[in-house]
């Protein structure tokens, strides 16, 4: 046996040993290939088909960007998600600040209250909001009984209802995003400013808010993407009168059975989400750089 042969045998052995490390990956990777990567690829393929002849066509893309109903749906989705992002961030901030700074025993209670709704699932919470907001719901019942209004206010099945419901669904995630950011701010900076005579308002304005901008940005981004891709809440609280991208995609698949159009709309949503997370990641790194210097 020559030296060269033993050498190549050793490399082969080493290679075989190295490959053995990949064996556990076979089941999860195969699974994701079959049920995730291939379906996404197929969806992209179908998006280029004509809905009737199945020949290559850009018709569905053209339709998404020219059809007024679809464009209005995309616009509604953006408006709704933007409002949800703002509401969530504004409401999450005080809770996150309390959780980050408080040492009282109420902290655990508040934390549990803030996170617990997540376990209840979207259905229960949406049902709750429906019976609060609908025409014969608690709020309208109470207002009519008090004589404030004579006919019910339109609180559900419109933008208002959907934004309220989604804010509730997304709020825990906004709280967690802001909590990590505020926990990273040294409380001594606030104390120092106070000792030097800064009022509470100027501490908030000049110290707390600027330093928590990364948290605010990530809360806005998480809320926006979660709201824009939500299905159940807009479907139930918006109904047929307030259609967003997600519910329109569902209609195309289940009622109109227009696969290419549904595929294009899904791709529009996917690209929107990827663009936002990409932009968000870039903004975040830039902010972190700026704050560290």
């Amino acid at each position: 046996m020559t030296i060269a042969e033993t050498g190549s045998a050793a490399t082969r052995l080493r290679r075989r040993f190295a490959l053995r490390g990949y064996i556990p990956l076979v089941p999860p990777i195969t699974f994701l290939m079959i049920f995730f990567a291939v379906p996404i690829g197929m969806m992209i393929g179908i998006s280029f088909q004509d809905s009737k002849t199945l020949a290559f066509s850009l018709g569905s893309y053209e339709r998404v960007f020219t059809d007024d109903l679809i464009l209005a749906g995309i616009f509604r989705t953006m408006l709704m998600s933007g409002l949800v992002a703002i509401c969530v961030t504004v409401m999450a901030y005080p809770v996150a600040y309390f959780l980050a700074r408080s040492t009282s025993r109420w902290r655990t209670v508040v934390f549990a209250l803030a996170i617990a709704p997540e376990l209840a699932g979207v259905v229960l919470r949406t049902y709750g909001w429906l019976i609060i907001l609908e025409d014969r719901g608690f709020i309208n019942d109470a207002l009519i009984w008090l004589g404030v209004i004579s006919s019910p206010l339109p609180l559900a099945k419109n933008l208002f209802g959907v934004v309220v419901g989604l804010t509730h669904v997304v709020l825990p995630f906004g709280i967690l995003a802001l909590l990590t950011s505020i926990q990273g701010i040294d409380p001594n900076i606030e104390k120092a400013a106070q000792i030097l005579g800064a009022s509470r308002a100027s501490v908030i304005r000049h110290i707390l808010l600027p330093l928590s901008i990364p948290g605010i940005v990530s809360s806005l981004l998480i809320s926006f993407t979660m709201a824009a891709s939500a299905y159940a809440t807009p479907a139930l609280l918006g109904g047929a009168r307030f259609k967003v991208l997600a519910t329109m995609i569902y209609e195309q698949i289940m009622f109109y059975i227009n696969w290419p159009l549904a595929a294009v709309m899904a791709i529009v949503m996917l690209v929107m989400m990827l663009a936002i997370s990409f932009a968000g990641a870039r903004i975040e790194t830039r902010l972190h750089k700026k704050l560290n210097v």
């Binding site: 994701l32 996404i40 969806m43 891709s229 997600a246 995609i249 949503m269």
Partner: peptide, 28 residues
């Protein structure tokens, strides 16, 4: 790279995953 592949479904909204899977299952 393998970990990012395992995590990649997280980057795709559920509705989009749903559309992709239902199209795949009903046509393939």
């Amino acid at each position: 790279a393998i970990m990012s592949f395992l995590l990649s479904p997280l980057a795709v909204p559920q509705i989009v995953k749903g559309v992709a899977i239902v199209l795949f299952l009903s046509s393939a």
